[in-house]
């Protein structure tokens, strides 16, 4: 039975698409047949982050409207095996996402994939609601900042009340917290919320902490999911996140400031 995972946040710009791309890539790397769907109709981005923008012919809305079949619209990822991307339409708007249409596409995908990752748009309107409605699990991406945390809280409330699982009285959507753009030294100084602060407010299990890293921007621009950047902190953190999702018990890295070496300490006077 396939698992549908929504990557959501409420707030924009916190790293949903970056997380969707790396998470889906990580699952596929580990041998799971994975599809990732861009629900941000009208603001298509996932294809850029995954470097397949020039191979988009048909999109999610075409499939919903019966103008193309799934096999025509799914783009095979060129970085890893087992990974397919269903891009959003850039020319339509979110009203084109009908509940029946989305359900039909997801049911079709369930036949041939083990994991279906839904990259949600920001906000709490139709696009976001459709992305989370059919989810079995949810990754709530949050930055260590009060407005982002509040928006995540809002999304958690919607998951608990307006998802299909909630409406049908099934077991609730399993919630995971992804804390991205985390800078331990700034959290220590009190410039940003700490991991503990965010966990205390949201009260859901922490799946991963992604450190703030220039590599994320570089890899986005290069169209390579950051999880594939060997040696980068952010890439390693996404790797851990995927392993944890699959059941491995790994300690959280990148949540304390890096220790200064002897020479650095000498010269910074600290």
């Amino acid at each position: 039975m396939a698992t549908v995972i929504v990557v959501t946040s409420g707030k924009g710009g916190v790293g949903k698409t970056t997380t969707s791309a790396s998470f889906a890539t990580g699952l596929a790397q580990r041998g799971y047949r994975t599809a990732v769907i861009d629900f941000d109709v009208g603001l298509r981005n996932l294809d850029l982050i995954m470097g397949c923008e020039r191979r988009v012919v048909y999109d999610f809305i075409n499939v919903i409207n019966g103008e193309a079949n799934l096999n025509q619209a799914l783009i095979r990822d060129k970085h890893v095996e087992n990974l397919y991307i269903l891009p959003a339409s850039q020319t339509r708007d979110k009203e084109a996402l009908t509940k029946e249409g989305v359900e039909r596409v997801l049911d079709d995908l369930r036949q041939s994939f083990e994991y279906i990752v839904c990259d949600s748009p920001a906000g709490i309107e139709r696009g976001a609601l459709m992305a989370l409605y059919f989810a079995d699990e949810a990754m709530v991406v949050t930055n260590p900042e009060v407005s982002s945390v509040r928006d995540s809280d809002r999304i958690l409330g919607i998951l608990a009340s307006r998802s299909r699982r909630a409406e049908q009285g099934d077991p609730p959507v399993k919630e995971h917290l992804v804390l991205s753009r985390y800078a331990p030294e700034r959290a220590d100084r009190g410039d940003m919320l700490s991991v503990e602060d965010v966990l205390e407010i949201l009260g859901i299990p922490l799946l991963g902490v992604i450190p703030e890293s220039p590599t994320v921007l570089q890899s986005s621009n290069a169209g390579v999911p950051v999880i594939l950047e060997e040696g980068s902190d952010a890439g390693a953190a996404y790797g851990d996140l995927v392993d944890r999702f699959l059941g491995k018990n790994l300690p959280h890295r990148f949540i304390t400031p890096p220790k200064k070496g002897f020479l650095k300490r000498l010269f910074s006077g600290g």
Partner: peptide
């Protein structure tokens, strides 16, 4: 369950007992 931001719970003619947190904005 926790009462999340944006949720509103009203109990007419009775008491409300929440076994969890009530978030900012709830």
């Amino acid at each position: 369950h926790p009462v999340r931001s944006g949720q509103q719970i009203y109990v007419a003619d009775g008491d409300l007992i929440v076994l969890g947190a009530v978030s900012a904005g709830a």
